[in-house]
Design a protein around this nucleic acid. Structure first.
Lengths: 343, 343
DNA sequence: CTGTTAGCGCCTTCAC
DNA sequence: GTGAAGGCGCTAACAG
């Protein structure tokens, strides 16, 4: 009744010892060969390698982890709230992450955060699995994770600059100030002078930076920067905020909307108010997502290299785990403007 | 230079032996307590449990795996192509999966499929990590995975019914025939008689089933079912297909579009052709995603319980892994129509 | 009901 | 350059 967990039915699972026996060497040698330890006789190495391959030998991850303390796995922590939204921001970085891990021969363990219950499970999972590192896609609802993970004991890289003093944290961010500047300048170039902003949460540096970029650009151009409204990151939020803005500042002729998702709501309010886009009001949005593409009219929108950010996050983490390079990695990627009809 | 991999800096990592020593019992007893083996003296169990908790003991997953052959991890395989689309279908089921795994105390390892290169990495990863089970979110580009994973040696559950003879496969699907019937019937009730379909790929049972549902409903109502066009799952695809359809059958007064993403493209073509929706042409779409919500006009769309499907997939896999219940689980969930202005 | 004792498969000093 | 042997932390017979 000794049930060997046969991974492939029929074919039993091959161990180092099996290969060693077949090759007439010790397990130590096979281990060295498989781990490409350079002190092995090249001829022998080749022979052993061939036999191992031919026998279909594969590492047993658990045994290896037990012996070395390394798991070869990293955690990717994402926001529950984002995933439950009709439009998920997470998928693009996720794509980048998943394509990059193959390069580094890493496994991705997905963890959800956002509710207290999940948080304890998260911490427990992190502890138990003993991942070698972690990545966090920062969003509103999990903006406190940097504190929570403060002494995680493994390297952590954030997608998005953490709040507060981020000097000791590793992150991959986009230049949100610059992105907002591009958007605002485009509005100004289009001849707009009474430019409002639909800003998002202030628990995210991204949102703060965009507000800052908008404000400084207007100020530098001698324009007023007081037409501000904050709202939820949703079409409804965009609609509400736009309504308030229109009521408070009926003279608005340009709007910088901090997300496409809000933008679609704003667009409906503008249409209902009889303001034509871009004839009466120019609009620039953020994210350059499918929503800006299918909007009516299609929205000019600031593009962030989200996939690339995911990849860079993995690269940074791998470098941190290797321990050879710098102990803090901070990378800021540029954003650009995709022009569509709303401008 | 014996570097103990301290998970938490400072505090060393606690093992069963540490707890056993502190409690004055054997490691076997602690192990039994932690695993809730019922034959332990309740008083002792309570005491040991308290000590373990107080010491912050956590299982070492690797050691446990090595001893039991079980990993507590399951793979989730998703399509690279879907993730790289501007609108990812995957996130909703992903959310369901991730929220459900906590219930079963499982870890999710994410794996990408869709390119040959990834496929070898996929197989390798599956073999190496030795996950206890796998889930696949079936999509066009990875519709061949059921064959590839045929003898994976671990239970597999699919999101979407696999092609071919699926009697021996476990899956969670939605009633796509029924969904298409609901959509088509709504079109008929709206007084439409010349009803076309924008169909998707035929490598997915979902798309085939929808076509079938559309066809049978029309036939049963004595209506013609030949206004068919297939296209890529994208706004551009929807636009192309709609253009062809309009050219071939100018008399169209109703359209069943097999995805919101195509629907947004179709809508633009209709608008450009001077056909008003729903005045001249009624339209029902599929997915009930944010795209149908922000479309102009907002689209009536068939809703699929994607999150729930993700959860059910995990439940099914857990049951399969437990090995107590049936060895094949097939679950088909109902879909419903969300009515909006396009009808 | 609890303790003892082998491993699980691999890595890694330590001798040779 | 290669082999022998201990141990990573835990589970699962088997005794007691």
């Amino acid at each position: 009744m000794t049930e060997t967990r046969a991974r492939r039915p029929g074919r039993a699972v091959i161990t180092l010892a099996d290969v060693a026996a077949a090759a007439g060497v010790s397990t130590a040698t096979v281990s060295r060969v498989m781990n490409r330890v350079p002190t092995v006789n090249p001829g022998l190495a080749l022979r052993v390698e061939a036999i191992a391959r031919q026998m279909g030998y594969q590492f047993n991850a658990a045994a290896r982890t037990l012996a070395t303390g390394r798991t070869g796995a990293v955690a990717l922590i994402i926001s529950e709230a984002d995933l439950s939204q009709p439009y998920s921001f997470t998928s693009a970085p996720l794509h980048g992450v998943l394509s990059a891990v193959a390069r580094h021969d890493l496994q991705i363990v997905m963890l959800l955060s956002g509710s207290a219950q999940q948080e304890s499970y998260l911490l427990e999972s992190l502890g138990r699995t003993g991942v070698d590192g972690a990545m966090v896609i920062l969003e509103d609802e999990i903006s406190h994770l940097p504190e929570l993970l403060g002494d995680a004991g493994v390297p952590v890289v954030y997608l998005g600059r953490p709040l507060g003093d981020a000097t000791s944290q590793s992150y991959v961010d986009v230049d949100n100030v610059g992105g907002a500047r591009i958007a605002t300048e485009a509005l100004i170039e289009a001849g707009r002078t009474r430019i409002a902003i639909l800003a998002g949460t202030d628990r995210l540096t991204a949102a703060r930076d965009r507000l800052e970029g908008w404000r400084s650009t207007l100020t530098e151009h001698g324009l007023e920067a007081h037409r501000i409204a904050r709202g939820a990151f949703s079409p409804a939020g965009g609609a509400d905020t736009m309504t308030r803005l229109l009521a408070a500042y009926p003279d608005i002729d340009g709007v910088f909307v901090c997300s496409d998702y809000m933008g679609s709501g704003a667009l409906q309010v503008l249409a209902a108010a009889g303001r034509r886009v871009p004839h009466d009001v120019s609009l620039v949005s953020y994210d350059d997502s499918v929503l800006s593409e299918v909007a009516n009219p299609p929205l000019s929108s600031v593009r962030q290299p989200l996939e690339l950010m995911g990849e860079e996050m993995v690269d940074a983490l791998a470098s941190l785990m290797a321990g050879s390079g710098p102990s803090v990695i901070q990378r800021v990627l540029p954003s650009s403007l995709t022009r569509r009809d709303s401008l």
